[in-house]
Design a binder for these strands. Structure first.
Length: 852
RNA sequence: GCCGAGGUGGCGAAACUGGCAGACGCACAGGACUUAAAAUCCUGUGGUCCUAUGGACCGUGCGGGUUCGAUCCCCGCCCUCGGCACCA
């Protein structure tokens, strides 16, 4: 018996799997498919044990499904574009591609040493022109359908680096690299019209019943659907006959409109400049507006600045009351939400209330609560906070007396028939700005021509490849804009001189459809063959970090709907089931290079082997929970594997190498039957824990119990491994029954361990004399008759407190159970002198004796 | 503030449909083996108490409730984590 040597067996089997290409798959119509997907990786350099937890969970599921007869697609690839590569290039005076390819090579090696069963033949990297070509193709399709469009918008500009920063790169208002204060700057930007799908994305959430609630809630909030009304307030223009001006407001509480005592505009509202021009002291007016506009953007968005405003001196007509109300400018009104203007109802909105009190504006109560402890009517002069709850309308003209229930919808329609407004739905979701003034991304395939305007690059000219660049300085505009050979081109329409678009796409574009590309990764004529994608998709199981709950998972759902509209796919949602795995912590903190608490998988593989690492990360906590890393825990998992190794290798000479005795024909003793029962109960438990529950940790527990049971069994039968030296001595004379049940148990153990510890299982499976790898073996079947307990232990309670445990036959009748329980001495002791009013008997499960 | 998830031994956790709380592992303690140690194997391990090979009581964040019976369901509160947050 040799020692467990993970290094040797892991290399042996990894080589064999690769040579035999066992994880490569093709469509097999008629065979059930299973698409198991883990979020692809950003090639940042080195994967740590936190990153790879995700991959291990996916691998357990993929391997288990494979053994259960599914045609399993389990691919991997690289989210290879993005800023860190460009920054590394600037720092090392190198090229982003060099850094990226090196990192991919290193990380791929790390994953391969973990023995993950990827179909590497489908590997893709988004920085491959063969991939991003299809980003461009899709962009053009979207451009044709007006889903992709260009408009001016405000971006973060770093004056120190003379470049645009992504929102994530602005740290507390400053540039993450040089610390300069970031300025807003207006630029022409490309957008994808995701808002066109806002309702579809929201409605689709209802069908995602195998996604975590947490993620669905986050998506709902992110989309932020809000039903209300758009209402027009006409501004007093003074002179009769002067052109009228309207302020449109969006409100969800049009039922309170009769209490609207003023109107507020965002400082960026288009009317503000005009009002300033027309003001008596235009300069002072404008100065105050500028003050608001220059307030820190994020502070304004998060409400960190104090609510302030000033009177424009203008008035507008409340279309429901006909009253003239002042128009104010307020710093907390957001230009980018709704219409950039709101009606203020101080009595029924807390923000408006505070604002009104601060500037002594009138507070007009139009809703009176109908329930509540104190039924004192609200009074605008004395109330101390706004009342936003339900009630009955007062001082609301023809609407007075209505309940707030349904009033908003009714009054929105009333506004429409009056011609002063209409019902409207607003979304928090914004169109997706995809322009990046960066090099290391997909070039946007558009040509700007002075005579023809924006022209799409013809499909046959795709891909627009990234041009070679000698040195990355990080200075100046978009790197592509500095390359005349790239920029200068001819117009595809008029052949005149024209300029290429120099923005590249947000990398979230790359990751929004990579899972379709896996299905047909080397297609050169289209993004993918719809038939091949139709076979594999939707993704059955998707595993990744919860940090992608919003962006990536909404963008992918959006792309899915676009692809469907393009006729490329047939399903509505890309991911049937989603699991968000917990992070791996060390010393209570998320692993990160900067904290210096990362654990390198290679180091752990070197010490304990990949199988121990895989087992540890799947056993120690449920997949969706955080995992606190401990070296001792990993060592425990390693110990378990050595225990399995000793057990199986010691039992090998005992169990028949060539054929297994037929259990059906053998008469078994009680202890043989007990081991079989444990074996089959373990099959039932592990199978259910893995699928559909994905409770990997309890599945491992069940396997540990089976091993413990096997050790006890071997001890009772004077067998290895406990009585090591006696193994050889008695090995050949072991009773056939013992050999048979042992063989079954050990085979089962090795099979069910295979998803977790594939190398160890392969090696032991081979040593047990089985031809063909464990990968191609079938998952064991539970025989319910064998698994059935033939004796039960039924707990007996008196008044809900456990007083006895009764060993009874498994087919015991309720009457017998009741009688046996009542006869039990401890039950009699606790019921002595009391009247028994009831005896609850739960069939085969429990007896509860209730006394008066 | 709103929404979501959670709170169980010294620690990670388990308990699937309201039915024996703490499976499995870590740590710790005792024992076997050994010249010794490591490794391995075995045993024990929620708390308090007692007349102690047995037994009593308490125990799943806190307080109530429903129920024969509650970690699980209901009401109120506390705490932790995550998300959203001046969205009109």
């Amino acid at each position: 018996m040799s020692d467990y040597n993970p290094k040797f067996i892991e290399q042996k089997w990894q080589r064999r799997w690769t040579d035999q290409r066992v994880f490569e798959v093709r469509e097999e119509p008629g065979r059930p498919k299973y698409y198991c997907l883990v979020m692809f990786a950003y090639p940042s350099g080195h994967a740590h044990v936190g990153h790879v937890r995700n991959y291990m969970i996916g691998d357990v599921i993929a391997r288990m499904k494979r053994m259960r007869g599914f045609n399993v697609l389990h691919p991997f690839g690289w989210d290879a574009f993005g800023l860190p590569a460009e920054n590394a290039a600037i720092k090392h005076k190198s090229h982003p591609e060099i850094w990226t390819r090196e990192n991919i090579a290193h990380m791929k090696g790390q994953l391969q040493r973990l023995g993950i069963s990827y179909a590497w033949d489908r590997e893709l990297a988004t920085c491959d022109a063969s991939y991003y070509k299809w980003n461009q193709w899709l962009f053009l399709k979207m451009f044709e359908r007006d889903i992709a469009y260009r408009r001016r918008s405000t971006v973060n500009w770093c004056p120190g680096c003379s470049t645009v920063l992504a929102n994530e790169q602005v740290v507390e208002g400053g540039c993450w690299r040089c610390g300069s204060v970031v300025e807003p700057r207006d630029l022409e930007q490309w957008f994808l019209r995701i808002t066109q799908y806002a309702d579809a994305l929201l409605d689709g959430i209802g069908g995602l019943d195998e996604w975590p609630d947490k993620v669905l809630t986050m998506q709902r909030n992110w989309i932020g659907r809000s039903e209300g009304a758009r209402v027009r307030f006409s501004v007093d223009v003074g002179d009769e006959g002067a052109e009228s001006i309207d302020i449109e407001v969006f409100t969800t509480r049009i039922d309170t409109i009769c209490g609207a005592t003023f109107v507020m505009l965002a400082p960026e509202h288009p009317l503000v400049d005009r009002f300033a021009d027309e003001a008596s002291d235009a300069a002072a007016f404008l100065k105050r507006v500028q003050q608001f506009r220059s307030q820190d953007r994020t502070d304004r968005l998060t409400g960190a600045v104090e609510k302030e405003g000033f009177d424009t001196g203008r008035t507008a007509i409340n279309p429901f009351t006909g009253q003239s109300v002042p128009v104010w400018i307020a710093n907390f009104v957001l230009a980018e939400y709704g219409t950039g203007a709101v009606m203020a109802v101080p009595a029924h909105d807390q923000r408006d209330f505070e604002f009104a009190r601060k500037y002594q504006l009138p507070v007009e109560v139009v809703i009176q609560p109908e329930t509540g402890v104190e039924m004192i009517p609200l009074d605008g002069a004395s109330m101390e906070e706004a009342y936003a709850g339900p009630g009955r309308l007062v001082n609301s003209g023809e609407f007075t007396g209505r309940s707030t229930e349904g009033a908003a919808a009714f009054m929105a329609l009333a506004a429409e028939s009056k011609g002063v407004g209409r019902p409207e739905v607003q979304f928090r979701l914004k169109d997706w700005g995809i322009s990046r003034q960066r090099y290391w991304g997909t070039p946007i395939p558009i040509i700007h021509c002075d005579t023809c305007g924006q022209q799409p690059v013809p499909y046959e000219d795709l891909p627009v490849e990234l041009p070679a660049v000698d040195e990355f300085t990080g200075r100046g505009d978009s790197p592509l804009a500095q390359i005349p050979e790239f920029v200068n081109t001819s117009c595809p329409s008029c052949q005149g001189p024209a300029r290429r678009e120099t923005d590249t796409m947000d990398t979230f574009v790359d990751s929004s459809w990579y899972f379709y590309r896996y299905c047909d990764a080397d297609n050169e004529t289209q993004p993918f063959d719809p038939d091949r994608v139709d076979y594999w998709t939707p993704v059955d199981f998707y595993i990744g970090g919860v940090e992608h709950a919003i962006l990536h998972l909404i963008y992918s759902r959006f792309f899915c709907k676009v692809f469907k509209d393009l006729g490329q796919i047939s399903h509505d949602e890309p991911f049937t089931r989603l699991l968000t795995q917990g992070m791996v912590l060390r010393d209570g903190a998320v692993m990160s290079k900067s904290k210096g608490n990362v654990v390198d998988p290679d180091e752990m593989i070197g010490r304990y082997g990949a199988d121990a690492l895989r087992l540890y990360e799947t056993f120690v906590a449920p997949p969706e929970k955080e995992l606190e890393w401990t070296d001792a825990g990993l060592e425990g998992s390693y110990r378990f594997l050595t225990r399995v190794w000793r057990l199986v290798t010691a039992v090998c000479p005992v169990v028949d190498q060539v054929s297994r005795p037929d259990l059906a024909t053998l008469r078994l003793d009680d202890d043989h039957r007990a081991l079989r029962r444990k074996t089959h109960q373990s099959i039932r438990r592990v199978s259910a824990d893995l699928d559909p529950r994905v409770h990997l940790n309890t599945a491992v527990s069940a396997l540990m119990e089976l091993v413990n049971e096997l050790y006890l069994f071997c001890d009772q039968h004077n067998l290895a491994p406990r009585s090591v030296n006696r193994a050889e001595e008695f090995g050949t004379v072991v009773a056939v029954q013992t050999r048979a049940v042992l063989a079954e148990a050990v085979d089962t153990l090795v099979l069910m361990l295979a998803p977790f510890t594939p190398h160890l299982s392969e090696e032991l499976w081979e040593q047990l004399g089985h031809p063909g790898g464990v990968i191609t073996a079938d998952w064991p079947e539970c025989d319910p008759i064998v698994a059935k307990d033939d004796a039960l232990v039924v707990p007996v309670q008196v008044n809900g407190k456990l007083r006895a445990r009764l060993p009874v036959a498994s087919d015991v009748s309720d009457e017998d159970l009741r009688a046996t329980a009542l006869a039990e001495p401890s039950v009699q002791l606790h019921t002595k002198g009391k009247e028994i009013v009831r005896v609850v008997v739960v069939k085969r499960k429990l007896v509860n004796v209730v006394t008066a």
